[in-house]
């Protein structure tokens, strides 16, 4: 519960960096094992060796690239949270676009704009998938909610006769 109460933001950068590295390393290991297998000379043993070598050489690179992306993304995300004082999907979309732009800053303005668009659209799609999944899962629980939804609100117990909006009366509970 201590973890839960803490502000996630500055530490989340490290967290995301590591998560992205492991994701990239695993994915890259899979990808490069297939690629090394196919590019190796014929013979099962040689193909196996080629696959291993490709994984050994390439998978950490993929992981590193992912880690750069994830770490930068998370850092920008946290900065935006700090600046905007609000956490919503816009933060991640903006930081995806900014990450894409920053990482291709050496390739010129056109490349920056292109990869910014790609990053933003990608993150927007991810956010949209999240939104859609929560909507679907909420719809599944909806009948139960409909039964529960009687206005049994705790602090203002049906203030039909509340003369003042600005009562600061300490409530029970």
């Amino acid at each position: 519960m201590e973890e839960y109460a803490r502000d996630p933001c500055p530490w989340r950068i490290v967290d995301d960096c590591g998560g992205a590295f492991s994701m990239g390393a695993i994915g890259g290991a899979f990808f490069h094992s297939v690629k090394g297998f196919r590019n190796a000379p014929s013979g099962h043993y040689r193909r196996l060796i080629g696959s291993f070598i490709a994984v050994k050489e390439r998978a950490p690179i993929v992981g590193g690239n992912f880690a750069v992306w994830g770490g930068l993304f998370s850092a920008i995300d946290c900065t935006l949270v700090y600046v905007r004082k609000k956490e919503d999907p816009w933060n991640s979309i903006t930081s995806g676009a900014l990450t894409g732009a920053i990482l291709s800053v050496r390739n010129g303005t056109g490349a920056m704009i292109g990869s910014a668009i790609i990053g933003g659209v990608l993150l927007a799609l991810i956010e949209g998938m999240g939104i859609m999944f929560t909507k679907i899962s909420a719809d599944q629980f909806n009948p139960a909610n409909r039964i529960m939804e009687d206005p049994s609100q705790m602090p203002p117990p049906s203030q039909n006769t509340s003369p003042f909006f600005t009562n600061q009366a300490p409530q029970y509970q």
């Binding site: 206005p151 602090p155 203002p156 509340s162 909006f165 600061q168 009366a169 300490p170 509970q173």
Partner: peptide, 10 residues
């Protein structure tokens, strides 16, 4: 515990 009611249109 304090409760601030900002809107109540019930």
């Amino acid at each position: 515990h304090r409760t601030f009611i900002l809107e109540d249109n019930r």
